[in-house]
Write a protein that binds this DNA or RNA. Structure first.
Length: 289
DNA sequence: GGCCAGGTGATGG
DNA sequence: CCATCACATGGC
């Protein structure tokens, strides 16, 4: 067993981190002891790591624990990225200072970007989440992962493409997937298995290149690409302008007469660059408190 | 009961 | 190239 302490910049809003993860029934969240457990695949092996908060917003500190010492460096790096421990709230704040949405920023500054463990999990999850209310989206993902994924030490791993590629539409229909959603999920997995689609190389791509790579894939539209960029690749300047939740949140915070269109949302983005992903998180979070 | 949900592809002009 | 529509089902 090894332990590594990490010290994010302050303020790090740990309550928002735990609150958001708690919405997902697949997450292992121990709110009383401020412990998360994280599933990571490394060298094709599944490992479970614990992340415990032991500081305060003003003096944030996390302890990361794992078993196998040979994976320590990579695990720590990936967990730092997943929970945005390198976040620099003062740069973010000074960017958002100039904008006219200060009440939102004041309320959520210090909330981290919260990533998925890997790009395939991010893609899979966001396809399942397309066009569903959040409650049902989480339920559907839960059914899928608890049926086809793997549980290690009470922590769920999403199934890999090899497993998903062998499913058929009918069995996903039984979980209450739509026919088309089932086709998307299976078709993408088959593309990955046949090497028509390589998600690993996306890490080195620009945002534009990621669009060009993913948009032609059946089942992947602009919203899904943006969610993969934000949650899978952890890009900091993503604002999913077509997202109905973002649109509703902007409607509310700017007290607009009607819900803004995608183009109208896009017009806000330059004010929030290069950190618009944080505004996206704040806006989503503001819909549930 | 009707409208909406952290969309997308297919269709028809 | 753009507008419209079907898709499935839960949540409220």
């Amino acid at each position: 067993m090894w332990v590594e302490k990490v010290f994010p910049h302050k303020p790090y809003n740990v309550d928002r981190l735990f609150r958001r993860l708690s919405m997902d029934p697949l997450q292992y969240v121990d709110d009383d002891n401020k412990i998360l457990k994280v599933p990571l695949r490394m060298q094709n092996e599944k490992g479970v790591y614990s992340v415990q908060f032991i500081g305060t917003d003003e003096q944030p500190c996390f302890e990361i624990r794992g078993k196998d010492i040979k994976n320590k460096a990579e695990a720590v790096t990936r967990i730092r990225e997943m929970f945005d421990f390198q976040m620099d709230p003062s740069s973010i704040y000074s960017t958002f200072r100039k904008t006219n949405i200060s009440s939102l920023v004041e309320k959520y500054i210090g909330m981290p970007l919260i990533g998925e463990p890997d790009v395939y999990s991010a893609l899979l999850k966001n396809i399942i989440h397309q066009q569903l209310n959040m409650k049902f989206a989480y339920t559907l993902t839960y059914r899928f992962v608890t049926k086809y994924g793997t549980k290690v030490e009470n922590v769920w791993f999403y199934p890999q493409a090899e497993v998903v590629s062998k499913l058929n539409v009918e069995e996903l229909r039984e979980l209450q997937f739509s026919k088309r959603k089932a086709e998307y999920v299976i078709g993408i997995a088959q593309k990955i298995v046949s090497s028509d689609l390589d998600l690993e190389k996306l890490y080195t791509y620009t945002n534009q290149e990621v669009y060009e790579e993913l948009l032609p894939v059946r089942g992947v539209g602009p919203w899904t690409v943006e969610c993969v960029l934000l949650f899978g690749l952890r890009r900091k300047d993503i604002l999913p302008a077509g997202d109905v939740g973002i649109q509703n949140a902007i409607l509310k915070w700017y007290q607009l007469p009607t819900k803004p269109t995608k183009e109208e949302v896009m017009a806000y983005k330059e004010n929030w660059s290069p950190y618009s992903s944080y505004i996206s998180m704040y806006l989503w979070e503001s819909l549930s408190g």
